[in-house]
Design a protein around this nucleic acid. Sequence first.
DNA 1: CTGGATCCCATTTGATACTG
DNA 2: CAGTATCAAATGGGATCCAG
Lengths: 110, 110
Amino acid sequence: MNAVHEASTCAVAATAEIIGAKWTALLVHDLSEGPRRFSELEHSCSGISPRTLAERLRALEQEGIVERHSYPESPPRVEYELTGKGESLLPIIDAMRLFGHSWLPCHHQH
Amino acid sequence: MNAVHEASTCAVAATAEIIGAKWTALLVHDLSEGPRRFSELEHSCSGISPRTLAERLRALEQEGIVERHSYPESPPRVEYELTGKGESLLPIIDAMRLFGHSWLPCHHQH
DNA sequence: CTGGATCCCATTTGATACTG
DNA sequence: CAGTATCAAATGGGATCCAG
């Protein structure tokens, strides 16, 4: 038990609160390839309800992970994009992807 | 949208289910330095209840992330240790630690 | 010391319908 | 299209007491 380890613990715990929320890792992963619209995220996060998606996006916006861009057109268009802070989460997502590939065979049917 | 990206999505989602559970990242981080006893983990995960700690450890054991070693002594001693699968989660934990250090100033008081 | 059993509450998430 | 409103359900997690 030392100060260095305690600081690590704190950093890990704080990061876990962000990335651990349901759907969050998936959303960041989807946004890693560029801006996405609400309906696009709704489709790629298959199973998420619009209520939950809206709430997650608001939380990520408040945490400075994503930016919301609203274009007052008709039909309305809103895009979500990773910030610099959000992009620095990508190494975590990538490590998760590698772990999943190695240890969690995907049984998804196409 | 392509098959490669869908496979990534699946891997990330499955890993998120493991690492996203509360306390899990912290537990794996604590166990990264070697085997730990129940009471040691209880102390380092400050605030966790024995009920929750026991539940998390059981889940991690079933997922093959940790191994439980029971020594029938008096007083009883039980140690938890990362498996190979558990150790392969460490790159994720390390990426989380780096993110936390860069973006999440720790206000913890000593 | 290492938990199991029980009770209970707060938060999160989902389903569905609806609106500007 | 991009959400909001409402209700219901699941889940997580703390407190407490108890046992091997």
